[in-house]
Amino acid sequence: MKIAVCVKYVPDAAADRSFSADHTTDRVGSIGILSELDEYAVEEALKIREAGDAEVIVLTMGPDGAETALKKALQMGADRAVHVSDPGLHGADAPATSLVLANAISRLEVDLVLCGMASTDAIMGVVPAMIAERLGLPQVTLAAELTVDGGAVRIRRDGEDAVEEIEASLPAVVSVTDQINEPRYPSFKGIMAAKKKTVETWSLSDLDVVPDQVGLGAAWSAVTEVTRRPPRSKGTVVTDDGTGAAQLADFLAANRFV
């Protein structure tokens, strides 16, 4: 079986994140990492490979530094990596991203596409569904548990109102939540092995995409303004000396919550 894992290179949430002058995410002034939520998808792919026989290919679309994200996935144990990189991609929105990834997935001819539930920077959580729509594949998203059996996938997910089990035949697009597993840390052996693995770089022309279809100018929505919110001002902090609850109750009453 061939598995593609879509991963994203994002600014580290633990550092200060900001926007550039053109309102796109500032990727220069920040430390970039493999989106933590994609580690769960990489881990799940590795578990499938360990249980049977599979090739795990990590795929990303992103700026120059994005190999950092791919390297981490290779160190965890992925077999090979593909980086779609093109100057024409700057400012790509979710529909454009899904177009590029869908074309890359078609070219890879995989049986299973695994994604994280959302990126940790934009947190839209829409790209897996968009890829499924573009490829005409079943969409089995937000898996808290995944079984791949023969030609089918079955997941359990925590839906809004119910716990649901969903089934689809392969090929399919599956996204996983952070409930599904505990991603491994790269081992020393994994780090050494990753040095020998290749990262292929594909451009838009390799994927039959023209820059006019993607990039900031081609986006289907536009950011008109970004404003930094003033930090929440620190309020009153009291140390409980036995009257903490009463003081809290006074605060709640003064603000009409009681």
Partner: peptide
């Protein structure tokens, strides 16, 4: 970014 920015946008 965890509530630190407000973004104004429009579908085009």
């Amino acid at each position: 970014f965890a509530g630190s920015y407000v973004v104004d946008a429009k579908v085009t």
